[in-house]
C-alpha cells in the first residue's frame, strides 16, 4: 500500500496519546511484575495456584468477543448502518458487563480465600494489576454507553463517526492489555 493511500488514524488523536500513555504504564507494571517474580519464583507460583484459571480464560474470551463487537460497530457505522452500529455497541457493553460480573465474582472468591494487598508480593501485584485494569474496563463501558446512546439518537453517520472510532480504540486497548495480563498472571509459570 502506498503512503498516500493509507487512511487517517481512526478516532481522535488525543485518545491515541492517552492510549500510548496507558500502554507505557501497563508495560512498566508488567515488567516490574516479571522481574519481581524472578526473585520470588516459589511465592509467585504458589500465589498463581490459588487463582482459578478458568475464570481468567472466560474473561479473556468475553473481552475478545466484546472487542469484536466494537470492531463490527465501527464497520457498521462506516456503511452508515446506524441501528446495526448501536446494536453492536450494546452487545459490547453487555459483554463488558459480563467481564465485570465474572471479575467481581473472582475478587469475592479471592477475598474469601484471604487474599489482600498486604499479604504478600504476588497478591499485591495480582490485585493491583487486575484492579487497575478493572477500572479501565469500567471507564471503557461508560464511554461505550455514552457513544451507544448518541448512536441511537442519530448522532453519528458514516462521514462523522469519530466518537465511535475513539471509543473503539480505547476498548481495543483495554482488550490488548488484558491479553498480556492474562498470560502473565494466570498462565506463565
Amino acid at each position: 500500500m502506498r503512503a498516500q493511500d493509507r487512511e487517517a488514524l481512526p478516532g481522535d488523536l488525543a485518545i491515541w496519546i492517552f492510549i500510548f500513555a496507558e500502554l507505557l504504564v501497563f508495560g512498566i507494571l508488567f515488567a516490574v511484575y516479571a522481574f519481581a517474580r524472578s526473585a520470588h519464583v516459589a511465592l509467585f507460583n504458589q500465589g498463581q495456584a490459588l487463582l482459578d484459571r478458568r475464570l481468567g480464560l472466560a474473561n479473556t474470551l468475553v473481552l475478545i468477543t466484546s472487542s469484536y463487537a466494537v470492531a463490527r460497530a465501527t464497520e457498521a457505522i462506516h456503511r452508515d448502518r446506524v441501528q446495526a452500529c448501536g446494536r453492536w455497541l450494546l452487545a459490547a457493553l453487555l459483554l463488558g458487563s459480563l467481564f465485570v460480573g465474572i471479575k467481581c465474582h473472582e475478587f469475592a472468591r479471592d477475598a474469601q480465600a484471604g487474599m489482600n494487598l498486604s499479604h504478600d508480593l504476588f497478591q499485591m501485584f495480582y490485585l493491583s494489576l487486575t484492579g487497575f485494569h478493572f477500572l479501565h474496563v469500567v471507564m471503557g463501558m461508560a464511554i461505550l454507553a455514552a457513544v451507544a446512546a448518541k448512536t441511537f439518537a442519530g448522532g453519528y453517520r458514516a462521514h462523522d463517526c469519530t466518537g465511535v472510532e475513539t471509543a473503539g480504540a480505547w476498548w481495543h486497548m483495554v482488550d490488548l492489555v488484558w491479553i498480556i495480563l492474562f498470560i502473565l498472571v494466570y498462565v506463565l509459570r
Binding site: 500500500m1 503512503a3 493509507r6 487512511e7 487517517a8 488514524l9 481512526p10 491515541w16 500510548f20 500502554l23 507505557l24 508495560g27 508488567f30 515488567a31 516479571a34 522481574f35 517474580r37 524472578s38 472487542s67 469484536y68 466494537v70 470492531a71 465501527t74 472510532e165 473503539g168 480504540a169 481495543h172 486497548m173 482488550d175 490488548l176 498480556i180 502473565l184 506463565l188
Partner: peptide, 30 residues
C-alpha cells in the same frame, strides 16, 4: 480490530514495538 493495518506505518510500528518490548522483558525476567 484497531484498524492500524491501513493507517500510516508508524502507528502500527509503535504498537508492534510495545508488544515486542513487553514480550522481551517478560521473557528475560522469566
Amino acid at each position: 480490530f484497531m484498524g492500524l493495518r491501513r493507517v500510516h506505518r508508524v502507528w502500527r510500528a509503535l504498537m508492534a514495538a510495545w508488544l515486542a518490548t513487553v514480550g522481551a522483558l517478560i521473557a528475560i525476567a522469566f
